[in-house]
Amino acid sequence: MVITDMEIRDYRPGTRAAVWEIQEFRGRAGLERLEGDWRRIWAGLPLRTSFMSFEACAAHVDHIMGDPDQLRCLALGDGREVRGICLLEPRMDMRLGMPVPTWGVLWLKHSHQADVLCTDDEARRRFLPALAAHVRREPEGRPLLVMGPLPSGSPFWEGLRSLGPPCLDPKESVRFMDCGSPYGDLLAGLSGNFRHNLNTARKRLAGLADVHFVIAREPRELEREFSTFLEVEASSWKGAAGTAVKFRRRQPAFFAALAGTLRGETDRFEIHALYAEGRCLASILGTRTGAVFSALKTAYDPAFARVSSGQVLLARVIELCCADPGIQRLDLVSDAPWLRGWRTEQVTLQLAYVGTGGWRGRLLTALLKLRFGPVRRLARWLRERKALSRIPL
């Protein structure tokens, strides 16, 4: 199914008028229709993060989405070629304590970000107004459009100026590392206490038998190491909490599909693991997409917590990235406290709710503003007062 939105003309003195329009394609077949444009735009990105790869999004549609036929593939064109692509999926938002049907940018749950695919800032500025107008004409009973979380400094958000008052929700940050400097220089810039703890962990690790690192890139190696990763992660607190990949009904198939399709020379899935005493102590699921290495998931064996196996393995991955002239950035894919000792770049994220369903959308947006404004501040104040009451005088 293909839907063409009304044209938006941009006249500039001395230039040919650009015609901006949204074309919509539905379902898995619609995603395949856009594969050629997707890969062309993807190849033009200076730093490609794995959650925006065609392989990752296709694996999400195939293995995570409940009904792939509801996928909306929206292509922003300028009258000559497709300049950007956005994938929308139907969701139920629970931020108001009740299920609210929404359209949201396809969000891979192993990533803290959800973005549109664009190579240039001009198209990013055009995308949100065109996208909101298109969805408002075809809301399909969903009164809200949820955008993000994506970097709060993105030109994409400039499009909010032309819309009705949205609700902005600051989200957690993500951390990146610049891998353009030698590993030794990076270490020298860390705190003395962090370096001391890392050296202590390495010395303890050296006291174990048969210490070695493994990098899996080939199909059989990946299959073996992925199975091991699932067991190691399930042995940690994630297993007890039921949040380990092994216990998520659709996630094992998603990662297996990503490992099976992202297998190029410059775009590939790989697993790094640390072994000792005949068993796996820690494992990292990662992707290399052009000049970016992304550490998607980290697992560690709690029985070897004294050697900080996850931190030692991450240090090894960082060292390899710094030594590889083709890698410029390490995407840590989270802002977990144990990552903060490394010299990282912090990128803040935000999420926006835009009304798309008439008065219902406007009402829900107003309620969300209240929820994320005064109500959130009151809840924070009550938590602080409760914590202070527990402190003995």
Results as ranks from 00 to 15, higher is better:
3 I>G: 12
4 T>C: 10
4 T>S: 13
10 D>M: 03
21 E>V: 08
26 R>V: 00
28 R>P: 12
35 E>V: 06
43 A>M: 01
55 E>D: 14
57 C>N: 03
58 A>G: 04
65 M>H: 00
66 G>W: 15
70 Q>R: 12
84 G>K: 01
86 C>L: 12
93 D>R: 02
97 G>Y: 06
97 G>P: 06
110 H>M: 11
115 D>K: 10
123 A>C: 03
131 L>P: 08
138 E>S: 09
145 L>C: 01
155 P>F: 07
160 L>N: 07
163 L>H: 09
172 E>Q: 12
172 E>W: 03
172 E>Y: 15
184 G>V: 05
184 G>F: 03
188 A>V: 12
193 N>E: 14
195 R>Y: 04
197 N>H: 12
210 D>W: 08
213 F>E: 05
213 F>Y: 08
216 A>V: 04
218 E>L: 08
218 E>T: 11
218 E>D: 08
221 E>L: 08
227 S>K: 10
228 T>R: 13
229 F>E: 05
230 L>E: 12
230 L>I: 07
248 R>W: 04
255 F>I: 06
255 F>G: 07
255 F>Y: 07
261 T>S: 15
264 G>P: 05
264 G>D: 14
265 E>C: 06
267 D>S: 15
270 E>P: 06
279 R>I: 05
281 L>H: 09
290 G>D: 07
291 A>D: 02
304 F>M: 01
307 V>T: 04
310 G>R: 00
313 L>D: 02
323 A>L: 03
326 G>D: 11
328 Q>H: 13
333 V>M: 15
340 R>Y: 03
343 R>S: 14
346 Q>T: 15
360 R>V: 09
365 T>I: 09
367 L>H: 10
374 P>E: 11
378 L>P: 01
389 S>Y: 05
